[in-house]
């Protein structure tokens, strides 16, 4: 297990380096000089050149890359060229919106998925089971931005119960939560649909498994057999899916934030790309990819811990 963890950690570091090269490369090659964009079309070539030097964009690419990397590792993210605000603070503020949004989305997704998947499987072959399966499919089929827009129309425009956009400070927790609710629902419905399908399949497999029958043969009731032998076995596929879906939620949040104009990571990313605010964009993309990679690592490790068949190998 320790060897496996060390091995996977090595892979994580390599992936992070790979990701950083890609991120840096892609955003540096974006057309348009940042200095030009910042100063506007009226600027003289001298002032553009001056700013380029000031921003360090005249240095060779490899040096720019290592400067950036050094900043990321030491935590000195620097200052945005556009807003003149410290990048660390900007990202931290955006995270206070995106983080709770993703978590709330996950909770809503699970609240939808667990009953849909579980009862969908347990009631399979009956009408209720089929209806539950169909609901999961609908959740899956509707894209987040369509579902989100529909939610705005119904709850914000028609009934005025929830805000359609914007975000107050967390100093008003009630209204802050309220404004996260609609976006979180539109995120959670999709994830709930996906997770419920996996859950349903894994519960169906479980119900047909021989070891569950053996447990029943020992005299365990269905409930006992499911609790003692079912949970752990059904968890295995769910951990994988859950981890991947959490990554999906983070990416989905970027879209949803734009539909609901929430000042989160996604909105920050979009504005910084539009403003050629390269440093901010690079840092955000790096941060998101890093989070996804770390999540994958955690999934792999917990899978190992749960499944003894994998424990011995590396």
């Amino acid at each position: 297990m320790v060897r496996f963890a060390a091995h996977r950690l090595g892979i994580l570091v390599l992936s992070l380096v790979g990701a950083s090269v890609l991120v840096f490369g892609a955003l540096t090659l974006l057309p348009g000089s940042p200095a030009q964009v910042i100063l506007g079309t009226q600027a003289t070539p001298q002032s553009v050149h001056h700013l380029t030097v000031q921003l360090g964009l005249d240095k060779p690419l490899w040096q720019q890359y290592f400067d950036w990397l050094h900043g990321m590792v030491t935590g000195a993210l620097g200052t945005s060229y556009v807003s003149q605000l410290p990048i660390g603070t900007q990202i931290w503020q955006a995270l206070q919106v995106t983080g709770p949004l993703v978590l709330l989305g996950l909770v809503i997704g699970l609240v939808i998925a667990i009953p849909l998947g579980l009862f969908g499987a347990l009631l399979q072959g009956r009408a209720t089971g089929a209806v539950l399966g169909a609901i999961g499919q609908v959740g899956l089929a509707v894209p987040t931005f369509v579902g989100g827009t529909l939610l705005i129309i119904v709850f914000a425009v028609e009934f005025h119960v929830l805000p359609a956009s914007g975000f107050p400070e967390w100093s008003h927790p009630g209204s802050a939560l309220k404004s996260l609710l609609l976006p979180a629902i539109s995120l959670g419905v999709v994830e709930g649909g996906i997770i419920s399908r996996y859950l349903r399949t894994s519960v169906l497999d479980l119900l047909q498994s021989d070891y569950l029958r053996t447990a029943r043969m020992k005299g365990l009731s269905m409930g006992q057999a499911l609790r003692r032998h079912g949970l752990r076995n059904a968890m295995l596929p769910l951990v994988t899916v859950g981890g991947l879906e959490l990554a999906g939620l983070i990416v989905g949040a970027i879209v949803v934030e734009n539909v609901f104009t929430l000042p989160g990571i996604g909105t920050l990313l979009l504005t910084s790309v539009n403003n050629r605010d390269l440093l901010v964009a690079q840092d955000i993309v790096m941060f998101v990819s890093g989070t996804v990679l770390v999540l994958n690592l955690l999934v792999d490790l917990s899978y190992r811990l749960l499944d003894p068949r994998l424990a011995g190998r590396s």
Partner: peptide, 23 residues
């Protein structure tokens, strides 16, 4: 449930799948 496993027991055909892989 009280009788199964106590006073009557069944040995299944396929031992490869009859045991819980995680216990």
């Amino acid at each position: 449930c009280q009788l199964r496993g106590d006073r009557i027991a069944l040995i299944f055909q396929d031992p490869m799948t009859a045991l819980d892989p995680t216990m």
